[in-house]
Design a protein around this nucleic acid. Sequence first.
DNA 1: CTCTATATTTGGTCAGACCAATTTGGTCCG
DNA 2: CGGACCAAATTGGTCTGACCAAATATAGAG
Lengths: 241, 241
Amino acid sequence: MTTENSISFEIATRLRTEILRQRFQSGDRLPSERDLAARFDSSRGAVREALSQLEQSGLIDIQPGGARVKPIEAASISVLGPLMSLDEVPDPALVDQFLQTFGALSALTAREAIKQANDEDMIRLRRMVVNLNRQSKDFESMQPPWREFLEELANVADNLVVHLISNDLKTHFVEQMLQLGFVPKLRKTAVNEVLSDLQKAVAARDGNQAQAAVQAYFDEVRGAVRELIHSRLGENRRQAV
Amino acid sequence: MTTENSISFEIATRLRTEILRQRFQSGDRLPSERDLAARFDSSRGAVREALSQLEQSGLIDIQPGGARVKPIEAASISVLGPLMSLDEVPDPALVDQFLQTFGALSALTAREAIKQANDEDMIRLRRMVVNLNRQSKDFESMQPPWREFLEELANVADNLVVHLISNDLKTHFVEQMLQLGFVPKLRKTAVNEVLSDLQKAVAARDGNQAQAAVQAYFDEVRGAVRELIHSRLGENRRQAV
DNA sequence: CTCTATATTTGGTCAGACCAATTTGGTCCG
DNA sequence: CGGACCAAATTGGTCTGACCAAATATAGAG
C-alpha cells in the first residue's frame, strides 16, 4: 500500500496488535476516542479513522457509549496477516491451517481450470506440468514454476471469489516466509509421485485427479514446513536460554 | 453490525457501489475529499472515514494528490457481499464461484475434522450424518441439519483460517439467497448417492472420501442453483418487457 | 436496597485551519 | 513545435474546538 505512513494507520496497527495479543477481553470497552487520542498524542480524527478500519475488519464494534472488542473468531480474514506477524516465527498451527486452505483453493482452481480450459489452455498447462517435472525436486527450484503454474490455472479457472480470497491470504504471508529464509525440505519420492499423478491428470484432462494431486503436493509442503518451523522454534528457545 | 446508520457508512456504501458498478475506470482519480463532502452534504471527516474503509477493502488507493480506483481483482474478499447485492438477482457466475469455493472449504473442513476427531466427536458426527439421511431429500428440509453438520465439522476441525474466510463469505450471502426465496430443486437420486457415500466415509473414518462427498453435494447444489437463477432471470426479463 | 432523575461521558458530525506533497498551468527556452 | 522548468492551485494528513444525541454513571429519593 501507499498510505501506510499515516498516523491513523500507525494507530490502527498498534491497536490491532494489542487486540490480537488478547490485551483486551472480548467484550471489553476500548478506551474512549479522546483517551486514545491523548495516548497516541494525536487527534480524535486520526483515532476515528483507525477505529473505523478495525471495525471493518471485525475486531471491534463501535457503538454510542463505547467501542467493544469482539472475539477474534468474529473477525475478517484481513487479520490473518497481522496475526501471523505477531511473533518472529509464526504459530505453526496457523501456518498449517493456512497451507491447508491455500492448498484446497489451489486444488479447486486446478479442477475448474481443467474443466473449462480450451485447447490452447490445455497445451500450455501440459507444457507447464512437464516443465515442473523437469526441475530437481527441492522446494527452491520448484517454487517459481509452481507459482507460474498456479497463476496460469487461476487465469483459466477465472474464479473471482477464489481470487479475492487469495489476495487476502497472500498478503504478508509470502514475504514473511521468505524473510525467514524458509526452505522446507520436501520428500523427493513423495513429490515425484505427486507430480507424476499431476502430469497424468493433466494429460488425461481429469479435473478431479488434478485436484487431488495439487492438494497432495500442498500436503507435502505442509509436512515439510511443520518440521521446519518446529526446528526454528527450537533454535529460538535455545537462543533465549 | 451496529454502526451502519452513520453518515460515513452511507458514503462508503454509495461510493463502493459506484466503484463496483464500474462508474470509474481503474486508475481514475476519485473526486477530492472536499468535493465529495460537498456532494454528500457532509464534512471531510465523514468522507475520510468512508475512504479509509474503501482503501482497506482494496478498492481505492489513497495518496497525496488524490485517491485512485483500483481494479476489482485487487480488492479484498469483503467486497463479495456488495458485489452480489448490486442487482436484485445476483450474477449467476458469481454465485457459482461462491458455491464452488464454499464447497471446497467445507470439504476440506470435513477431511480435517475426521482426521482430528476424538471418539466422542466421531460418535456425534456419525449420528448427524445418519440424521441427514433420514430427511426427505429436498433442499428445504435438508438445510438445517446440513448447517448443523457443517458447524460441527468446523468445531472439530478448528481451522481459524477457514473460519475467518467463512465469516466474510457468509456475510450478506445467505440472507440474500433466502430473501429471494431460493429453493433449489435437487436431484434426489444424485443426492441420495452422495449422502450414502458420506455416511460410508464417516463410518469408515475416511477423510478423503468424506471430502469428496461433501464437495459432490455442493456440486449438486450448484447445478440446482444455476437452473434456479436462470429461470429467475428469465422471469425478470419477461417482466421488463 | 431499588428505582429514578440528573450529570457526565461517549460516539457522530461539523467547521475551519495549517502543512507538505502533488498536480496543474503557464512560461520560457531550444 | 516540443520539452524543461517554475509558480500557483489542489489535495491529502492532521489538529483544534465545538455541538448534539444517545448511552452511561452517579447521586439522591423512596
